[in-house]
Amino acid sequence: MATRDSSPSLSAPLDPDKAFIQSHGRLPRPLEHAAFDPFRRAVLKVPTWVSLLQPLCAVLLIPLRLLVAVVATLLSYLLVLVFGPPVTARSVATFSATPLPAWRRAVCVFATKLLARALLLGLGFWTVRGRDAPAYDHAAAQKATIVSNHSSLADPCLLAYLYAPAFVAKRKVYMIPGIGRVGAAQHAFYIDRLNGSGLSVTSKMVERQNLVRESQVPVPPVCVFPEGTTTNGQHLLKFRTGAFVGGGPVAPVLIRYRYGWFSPTYETVRTPAYLLAILSQFANRVEYYRLPVYHPSAEEKEDPALYARNVHQLMLEKSEEAFGHALVHSESNFVDKIEYHSLVWGRKLKPGFRLTNDR
């Protein structure tokens, strides 16, 4: 008498939910989940007359804007190539900084601010408006770490125009012709957010922060977007602690974009469509508010998470004073954004990509 095989059939399909959990750590969340709110894009109905004028604006404005950007990039590149510090693949990979004589550093600062303002102009920001808090001290801010909310590709341009700092940026930014080299002249940190060593970057950042404060010759201040990714400009994500580990002072900056039909925020929009739309819009508007330099207490120096939370809370509180509209706190992060993009754009997450909140 034949016995019945109790083992599961080799042809039986694996439960898709179980497979997803095994690969990504948990089940996917629905599109309406609150964790995705900071990445939802505001889509306005464009009036017919605007949609008819947009192609004309694109034909007339985009070539001129690109010309401005190319000329400024070339000039800035040549200036930092001749007068800036030597840049090698090793110096970029190890985030090493070379202090320069004051006059050479001034040339690099000029080149950086020239490029930044030209890029803002090319993106349609004819004017840059902002206010400083009564106790704001620009000289002190240049010795602190610049921290800002992050919602647009124009954010680095604005902060480069204001401070000419060393940014913590994605490694692929270094590959942008001219722009990556100018950033390297300011000793930018080019990192891989998903595969890089966070501890190494943080330790190097602390070294640089100390160098900025203690060096007798000018060294560009470090600039960090502690949210770790861009939002729709209505939220302020929980801060990562990297910028606060060193226990030095920070200079918080709040940025807001006002718009008519197309939002300059860069949260959930494909890059080609984003650039085409922002370059075709006749004018874009940005404003900033610079808070006084924040000096941490003894407790905050010992606890970077506490330090980060307190600065985050301060920026939330001051956002309404700055712009008449308070930012909303969110615990979301870059991994939530990747998951949201996978839902919106129908992309499959790479096997092994962990949907956890520890990044």
Rank of each mutant, 00 (worst) to 15 (best):
A166P: 01
G196N: 04
S330M: 05
W49D: 10
Q313V: 15
Y77R: 04
T48K: 06
T145K: 03
F244S: 00
P304Q: 11
I255G: 01
S91Q: 12
I146G: 00
G352D: 08
P218L: 03
L78M: 15
L349Q: 03
M315R: 02
K348N: 13
I62A: 06
D155N: 03
V201W: 04
T73L: 08
P296W: 05
L343S: 07
V222G: 02
V293W: 10
Q209A: 04
Y174G: 07
V43A: 04
A185P: 07
A140R: 12
P16L: 05
T268F: 09
L44D: 13
S51E: 15
S197C: 09
V147N: 01
F39V: 00
E299C: 02
L153Y: 11
K143L: 06
L306G: 09
I191N: 04
V222M: 14
Y274N: 04
D15S: 15
F189D: 07
A184L: 06
R129N: 14
L79N: 05
A58L: 13
V173T: 14
A277E: 01
S91P: 15
P86V: 09
T230W: 00
V68R: 13
F95P: 04
S297R: 10
P226C: 03
K170P: 13
T112K: 09
V217H: 09
R129V: 13
V109D: 13
L159P: 01
R105D: 14
R290C: 07
V80W: 02
Y163C: 13
L78D: 11
R65A: 10
E339Y: 04
R347F: 14
A118V: 08
G198C: 06
F110G: 06
P101R: 02
D132H: 05
G183K: 00
S263Y: 01
A116W: 02
D192Q: 11
L78F: 14
R4Q: 15
R40T: 05
L67W: 13
G178M: 07
A185H: 07
F36W: 07
V212D: 00
P30Y: 03
T3L: 10
H235T: 12
I146S: 02
A34Y: 08
A93E: 12
E299V: 06
D17M: 05
L75D: 06
A298S: 14
H295A: 12
G247S: 09
S23G: 08
R104Y: 08
P221K: 03
H150R: 06
A141C: 15
V147G: 00
K172E: 15
A89C: 12
E317T: 10
A326M: 07
P252G: 00
L162E: 06
C108E: 00
V286D: 01
I278G: 00
A93V: 12
S152L: 05
L119K: 01
V70R: 06
P63K: 10
A12L: 09
G183R: 00
R4A: 11
R40Y: 03
V344P: 04
H235P: 05
L162R: 09
H329A: 13
N195L: 11
R90P: 12
E339K: 01
P292D: 15
D37M: 08
Q281L: 11
L211A: 11
A116K: 00
